[in-house]
Design a protein around this nucleic acid. Structure first.
Length: 494
RNA sequence: GCCGCCAUCGUCUAGUGGUCCAGGACGUCAGAUUCUCAUUCUGAAGAUCGCGGGUUCGACUCCCGCUGGCGGUACCA
């Protein structure tokens, strides 16, 4: 049995699309589960699309996600390095290899030089479409004699190398997620293998590299389903083994179109910036198109569980809508699981983005204080960027509205008495006793069955807000001195 | 246009001929807890399984057609 070798082969576009991220995840899970090799290859054959630092960003996301691979392209001390016996793993460094195989194909009669200009091709297609024919290369250059080709080559005329498709019969293959797929060969086009700039097209490079790198399973997006027969012909032309294919469904916008930038964030980086945890993103994305089946109702999966349970046969065939609400839910679950220390560490960069935080006193920026805030806030968070947003009173002075202080129809006099009562209770609690439990116990005890009358005014006095955590929790975070000060300020209104 | 893929609650999905007048999760709504918010718990609504034909004693499950969505049809990947 051949060793399982799979690859994630993105082109460096400057960011990691979540759809690509899911392909990477599934490929990684498949590799781990089968104790195979996971390889990172870079498909940078389109010079027009060159983006600076894209490679670095890509690798950083791979590392961040924990998709460790055994071969391919790495980042070491900010330098791009490559490891593995099947390199180079960056396609732009493999140009000679593609050239060699392209010429081998010409010799075998499965490819030919084409000197048609882009303008001519465009006209040809326009005509075909106008005549309601399928746009397809008309094989003009296939008819060139050997001498004609030689002459054109000698005169340095730009050329591409095209695949000579066998149009007889049909090509069939068994897709691991879709089953049998069959396409009539006559609809296949003589596609370009090598461009005039010497770079290969994806259509050629993927076949050459997958073979040379001994890839056993090709896992990729469904946009390649219809070109796969052309790839299969290439494998056959070279008399190479054809790998197993698995085409993954697309990720969709809420309106079911292909997930795109226009309708929201598509880059994994965007979600990281918003404070979604790695574990949550992985968990959520894994569930977009896959589930353990067999009646399982599990929703929360660790990477280990995913590796154990993932199965390409259970990958859904239809596209999946990227549902932010569920991501929020999963993320909030992971936030609740974090230890206070972990939550604090992860929250730091998000605090620093907030104006109310930066303007706060040093004491309120301290680890001790922030951990208290987080203790109260964690059960309200869907993502880390929401941090503090609804509880800014923890960081800045407040000025509460007198009418907001009023519980139902309470009179001014009773309101004042209520606040004074709270003040007295808090005053009597020793600094050393200043805990959530103690505060809650004392306040509830004093309020007896009239909680609203005591707790509502106190809560508003402390927060200035209509909605907030409970007064005992707020008082605990603020501390005795600050809490009493705020009650005093509220009392000044009477 | 042509070729291909796909089609179960709003969304993610379970379901591989009878156990499904379709199960779970998110979301929604209601209730409980409660000083408000959130959490938590309980419950409810929500899918004539895209439509129409077959096959079968019996179909969400198999076959055919249609419709719709998506993908491909590039010297992009």
């Amino acid at each position: 049995m051949k060793k399982t070798r799979v690859r994630f082969a993105p082109s460096p576009t400057g960011y990691m699309h979540v759809g690509n991220f899911r392909t990477a995840l599934y490929t990684y899970l498949f590799a781990k589960q089968n104790k195979g090799e996971f390889i990172l290859r870079i498909e940078d054959t389109d010079q027009k699309r060159y983006v600076k630092d894209a490679l670095e960003k890509l690798i950083q996301i791979m590392n961040w996600a924990g998709f460790d691979y055994g071969e391919g392209v790495y980042l070491e001390n900010n330098n791009i390095v490559q490891k593995g016996e099947f390199g180079p793993y960056i396609q732009s460094e493999r140009l000679e290899i593609y050239k060699k195989y392209a010429h081998e194909l010409i010799e075998k009669g499965h490819a030919y030089y084409c000197f048609c200009t882009p303008e001519r091709l465009e006209k040809m297609r326009a005509k075909q479409i106008a005549e309601k024919q399928a746009p397809k290369y008309d094989q003009t250059c296939l008819k060139l004699s050997k001498e004609e080709v030689g002459e054109k080559l000698k005169s340095d005329m730009p050329y591409v190398i095209r695949q000579k498709i066998n149009t007889e019969g049909a090509t069939e293959y068994a897709d691991l997620v879709r089953g049998k797929i069959r396409i009539e060969n006559e609809v296949l086009d003589d596609q370009v293998l090598l461009k005039s700039d010497g770079y290969p097209t994806y259509n050629f490079a993927n076949v050459i590299d997958d073979h040379l790198m001994e890839i056993s399973h090709v896992i990729r997006g469904e946009e390649y389903i219809s070109s796969t027969p052309k790839f299969i012909q290439l494998y056959q032309n070279f008399e190479w083994d054809v790998p197993v294919f698995a085409h993954l469904p697309l990720l969709l916008n809420p309106d079911k179109s292909k997930l795109s930038k226009r309708q929201g964030d598509v880059a994994v980086e965007d979600y990281i910036k918003k404070g979604y945890l790695k574990e949550a993103i992985v968990n959520f994305v894994a569930l977009l198109g896959w589930n353990p089946g067999e009646g399982s109702t599990q929703e929360i999966f660790s990477m280990e569980e995913l590796i154990e349970k993932f199965d390409l046969a259970h990958v859904h065939k239809a596209g999946a809508v990227f549902d932010l609400k569920k991501l929020d839910w999963i993320n909030s679950r992971y936030i609740k699981r974090l230890s206070l220390g972990e939550l604090y560490e992860k929250s730091l960069e998000f605090w620093k983005q907030k104006e109310f935080f930066n303007n706060a006193s040093e004491e309120k920026k301290s680890e001790e204080y922030l951990k208290k805030v987080l203790t109260i806030e964690r059960e309200r968070l869907n993502n880390l960027s929401e941090i503090g947003e609804n509880n800014q009173f923890f960081f800045q002075d407040i000025d509460c509205d007198k009418e907001l202080l009023r519980w139902k129809e309470m009179s001014d006099e009773n309101l004042k008495l209520s606040l004074e009562k709270s003040e007295k209770i808090l005053e009597e609690i020793l600094e050393s006793d200043w805990s959530r439990e103690k505060l809650e116990q004392k306040l509830l005890e004093a309020a007896a069955d009239k909680r609203g009358e005591l707790l509502w005014p106190l809560r508003v006095a402390l927060t200035g807000e209509q909605r907030s955590p409970s007064p005992s929790d707020v008082a605990w975070v603020l501390g005795k001195e600050e809490s009493l000060k705020r009650i005093e300020q509220a009392l000044e209104k009477f």
